[in-house]
Simulated scan of single mutants.
Amino acid sequence: MTKVLTEKNFTYALSENMRVIAALVVRSAVTRFGESRMGFVWVLIEPAAYVGVYLLVHASMDASIPFGDSALLFVLTGIFGFRMTRGIARKTERAIISNQPMLTYPLVRPLDTIIATFLTESTIWLIICWLFMGGLSLMMDRSVIVYPADFAECLLAILYFALSFAAFNAMISALIPRYDTFINMLSMPLMLASGVFFVPTQLPPDFQAILWWNPFLHCVEWFRTSTYLDYNALLSKSYLLGVSTGLLAAALSIERIFRRKIVAS
Results as ranks from 00 to 15, higher is better:
residue 24 L to T: 06
residue 265 S to N: 11
residue 79 I to C: 02
residue 175 L to N: 00
residue 51 V to C: 05
residue 93 E to D: 12
residue 83 R to T: 14
residue 229 L to I: 09
residue 162 A to H: 00
residue 215 P to V: 02
residue 212 W to S: 11
residue 138 L to V: 15
residue 117 T to N: 05
residue 56 L to F: 12
residue 210 I to M: 15
residue 89 A to L: 08
residue 98 S to F: 14
residue 169 N to P: 06
residue 83 R to M: 15
residue 71 A to I: 06
residue 8 K to E: 15
residue 125 W to P: 00
residue 256 R to A: 14
residue 104 T to Y: 12
residue 146 V to R: 05
residue 107 L to A: 13
residue 35 E to T: 12
residue 154 C to Y: 01
residue 159 L to R: 08
residue 138 L to G: 10
residue 129 C to G: 14
residue 209 A to E: 15
residue 72 L to C: 11
residue 151 F to S: 09
residue 30 V to W: 13
residue 148 P to W: 05
residue 160 Y to S: 04
residue 101 P to I: 07
residue 140 M to F: 14
residue 124 I to F: 02
residue 79 I to T: 02
residue 50 Y to W: 12
residue 173 S to I: 02
residue 2 T to C: 07
residue 8 K to Y: 15
residue 175 L to Y: 07
residue 50 Y to V: 04
residue 12 Y to F: 05
residue 21 I to E: 07
residue 27 R to M: 05
residue 218 H to V: 03
residue 151 F to G: 06
residue 41 V to I: 09
residue 171 M to Y: 00
residue 252 L to Q: 06
residue 241 L to P: 01
residue 189 P to G: 10
residue 156 L to D: 07
residue 101 P to D: 04
residue 150 D to N: 12
residue 192 L to V: 09
residue 45 I to K: 02
residue 116 A to K: 06
residue 88 I to P: 00
residue 185 M to K: 08
residue 263 V to E: 09
residue 262 I to N: 02
residue 11 T to E: 06
residue 247 L to M: 02
residue 141 D to W: 13
residue 50 Y to T: 04
residue 99 N to Y: 02
residue 245 T to H: 13
residue 77 T to K: 00
residue 177 P to F: 11
residue 194 S to I: 02
residue 68 G to H: 11
residue 92 T to H: 05
residue 17 N to R: 15
residue 262 I to M: 03
residue 213 W to S: 08
residue 84 M to N: 13
residue 129 C to T: 15
residue 131 L to P: 05
residue 123 T to D: 04
residue 171 M to C: 07
residue 80 F to T: 05
residue 179 Y to H: 09
residue 120 T to P: 01
residue 2 T to Q: 10
residue 246 G to K: 11
residue 241 L to T: 02
residue 136 L to R: 04
residue 48 A to Q: 14
residue 211 L to R: 06
residue 103 L to S: 10
residue 196 V to E: 01
residue 233 A to C: 12
residue 108 V to L: 10
residue 150 D to S: 09
residue 98 S to V: 10
residue 177 P to A: 10
residue 224 R to M: 03
residue 177 P to M: 12
residue 14 L to K: 09
residue 46 E to H: 10
residue 124 I to V: 15
residue 93 E to V: 03
